[in-house]
């Protein structure tokens, strides 16, 4: 009886030490998980999830503050991918975006633009060029169609057009 107890206690202690050491050295870093989640998101930086960009949202998911169904452009497909990766349950996207794909880009109407610079600051991917008092324009190759430039515009000169047009 005593021998058995000692042997098992010994095994347990050895294993416990192994576990403690490995939990210290083998843990996955949070950053890797965030990278992976970010790669599953559409990454058009539209901020519709309530976070300033896709990486902050990914970080929020990892630190367990945010739901996985907040990304309207990604749609249910993205939620499904995230659910599969995180092993959590699927639930449909809470709000629907009018831009669910990357096929639309912003277009600044030249006649109306007053060069106020507000859209330039709003663009998450620096796809708008221009300076004060001069007309701005959208670099179509870089625009992700996130619509963040539309609300700040005081003269409503920005509209969305099809990418290929």
């Amino acid at each position: 009886m005593a021998t058995a107890t000692v042997i098992f206690a010994g095994i347990a202690i050895v294993l416990a030490i192994l576990l403690i050491v490995s939990s210290h050295y083998l843990s996955t870093t949070e950053n890797e998980v965030i990278d992976k989640i970010e790669s599953l998101l559409p990454r058009i930086q539209c901020a519709q999830c309530g976070y300033p960009g896709c990486r902050p949202y990914a970080a929020a998911i990892v630190t367990d503050k945010a739901d996985i169904n907040l990304c309207p452009p990604g749609g249910n497909e993205t939620v499904r991918r995230l659910a599969k990766f995180l092993g959590s349950d699927f639930s449909p996207v809470t709000k629907y975006s009018t831009t669910a794909n990357l096929n639309e880009i912003a277009f600044i109407s030249e006649e109306l633009c007053i060069g106020c610079n507000l859209c330039l600051r709003a663009c998450p991917v620096d796809a708008i060029v221009g300076t004060h008092q001069s007309m701005h324009t959208v670099i179509s190759d870089h625009c992700t169609g996130c619509r963040l430039c539309i609300p700040p515009c005081p003269v409503d000169c920005i509209s969305l057009v099809s990418r290929n047009a």
Binding site: F8, A12, L15, A16, L19, I20
Partner: peptide, 11 residues
């Protein structure tokens, strides 16, 4: 202890 809890459960 979180890292050895499983071990203790099994014991």
């Amino acid at each position: 202890l979180p890292s050895v809890r499983i071990l203790i459960f099994v014991m």
